[in-house]
């Protein structure tokens, strides 16, 4: 029976809050020490695991996971899902990844200035030039003469320690905005204006950084998954253990928020012959 000194308020609401954010249910119930312990320990374990796995530990299972023989992914996610909101976000990311809008793009909504790393290849009066470049891309949307949309811009960077600047053609192509990779592929033509006409003289291919919300908890494909395993080795398994343990521990916290602690204050008097928790 629940100790009368423990006030759970609306226990079901406490349980929901405890599920969504570890410790939030206990905070609502005014059990501040418990809220702090659950928040720090469970979220601490979860975030440590995420950091160890380069923030890729949580992967929403594919739809129809059991039918496609990926029951293991479902189990892993089920264990992590006890942490609540931080893990449920992976479902949103899965939907965003599979959305038809998440495709290679040749249009932009606004101007973009971004660092770039990749390779360049162009031809000028002094011959062919090819090499690795780093620099900055300034991209901007453009409307063609027939109303078609495109992306153009300018690249400024260094090739073999020499500063270079090139205008980009009107057909810059970007990889899909949502992916588990932290970098987004980009391909562009390089143009030069000669006799009032734009002439394509080469190509630029490489990567620009992807926004955090566009790769965080996005499901990886098999190649990306294998790459992560290869890079992290046993630390990947450790990271997964941390996130699973965090999820399973929050089940205890949710139970505590709904039903109260298993033993109470430890000073309860029990029927003759019974043991107090202190002596158990």
């Amino acid at each position: 029976m629940l100790d009368s000194r423990i006030r759970l308020k609306h226990a079901w609401l406490g349980g929901i809050l405890a599920f969504l954010i570890p410790g939030a249910g206990h905070l609502y119930q005014g059990r501040y020490f418990k809220a702090a312990v659950y928040f720090c320990c469970i979220l601490g374990l979860f975030l440590t695991g995420m950091a160890l796995a380069e923030w890729q530990a949580v992967q929403a299972p594919p739809k129809k996971a059991l039918a496609s023989g990926k029951g293991g992914a479902l189990l892993k996610y089920a264990a992590q899902s006890g942490v609540g909101l931080p893990v449920l976000f992976a479902l949103v990311q899965r939907e965003r990844l599979e959305s038809p809008e998440n495709a290679r793009t040749t249009t932009l909504h606004s101007k973009m200035v971004t660092p770039f790393t990749g390779t360049i290849s162009y031809l000028d009066e002094s011959g062919n030039h090819t090499g690795k470049v780093t620099g900055t891309l300034s991209l901007a949307p453009i409307s063609g003469q027939f109303g078609n949309q495109g992306i153009t811009g300018e690249f400024t960077g260094k090739l073999d320690d020499q500063a270079i600047t090139f205008a980009l053609s009107d057909h810059v192509e970007l990889g899909p905005p949502i992916s588990a990779r932290k970098e987004r592929p980009l391909a562009a033509g390089l143009v030069r204006e000669q006799n009032g006409r734009k002439e394509e003289i080469g190509h630029l291919y490489g990567m620009i950084p992807r926004a955090f919300w566009n790769w965080f908890e996005v499901p990886m494909d098999e190649e990306e998954d294998e790459d992560l395993h290869r890079r992290l080795g046993k630390f990947h398994e450790l990271a997964m253990v941390f996130t699973w343990v965090a999820g399973l521990l929050n089940v205890l916290a949710i139970w505590d928020a709904v039903e109260g602690p298993a033993y109470g204050f430890g000073d309860e008097t029990l029927p003759a012959g019974g043991k107090t928790p202190e002596t158990a």
């Binding site: 418990k34 343990v245 965090a246 602690p261 298993a262 033993y263 204050f265 928790p277």
Partner: peptide, 19 residues
Amino acid sequence: LAVAISLVWNTSRYESTSL
């Protein structure tokens, strides 16, 4: 890991901070 497990487990068992 051991600290977190022991703290969370016992927090779900008892209500008294010292215990």
